[in-house]
Amino acid sequence: MIADAVFWILAVLAVFSAWRVFRTDSMVRAAYWLLVSFVGVGLIMVMLKAEFLGVILILMMGGEMTIMAVFMVMFMMNPAGLNPMIMVHQNRAAMAAGFGSFALLSAVGLFARFPASVVAPTARATAELGTELLGDSMLVFQTAGVTLLAAMIGAVALVSVRGRFGPADEGSDAPEQQPAADADVDSSAPPSSTGPSSSAASSPTPPAPSTTPEVTEGAMPADHSHEGA
């Protein structure tokens, strides 16, 4: 009974916070809403007797989401969402992808044959995981190590400013963007922009507050979708 209630609370929390990720203007809030969602999922996993996997999910996401927040703040214009903006773009494609993956995962849930045996309360899930890692999955494990090393070296070689391979920005072109000296010039989109030209924003009077999202979208410079990519 209580377990059911807790499960539903956590499930609703996970879904609700995942939805909030896309409804907030602040990058930091978005990252940490996602963390809340992961914590909800992690706790559900703990309830499902996958104690280690659930807790390790929370452990990893704590650091990871902070890194995500920090990187999003670094690269997004208006990172704290002081100006209104919309976090979702290409709505049709996104909706198609979302519903598609939802249907796929649901299908797995509905049609896959899961083992019917109940997990014994004495099962040592973590130990079994360890045995698996040292046994059949050893090759996977070691490959992961080499992959991680490659990732590390690649990341450092790409971003290190004063590495042996010269300055990191050598040969790269800085994006031609004008500083947001004043509100009107700022909203001119960069050449690469694919969005609608933001004529609404360059008009001297800002659009009237409205609850319809279309108005706001018109008021946005189109370049921020590229910024966040």
């Binding site: 104690e51 807790v55 390790i56 929370i58 704590g62 650091g63 902070t66 973590t126």
Partner: peptide, 18 residues
């Protein structure tokens, strides 16, 4: 009494950064 006591502890302390 958690089977993964030190993992819970490490997870909680990892979130201190947040």
């Amino acid at each position: 009494e958690a089977d993964t006591g030190i993992v819970v502890f490490a997870a909680a302390m990892a979130l201190v950064v947040v």
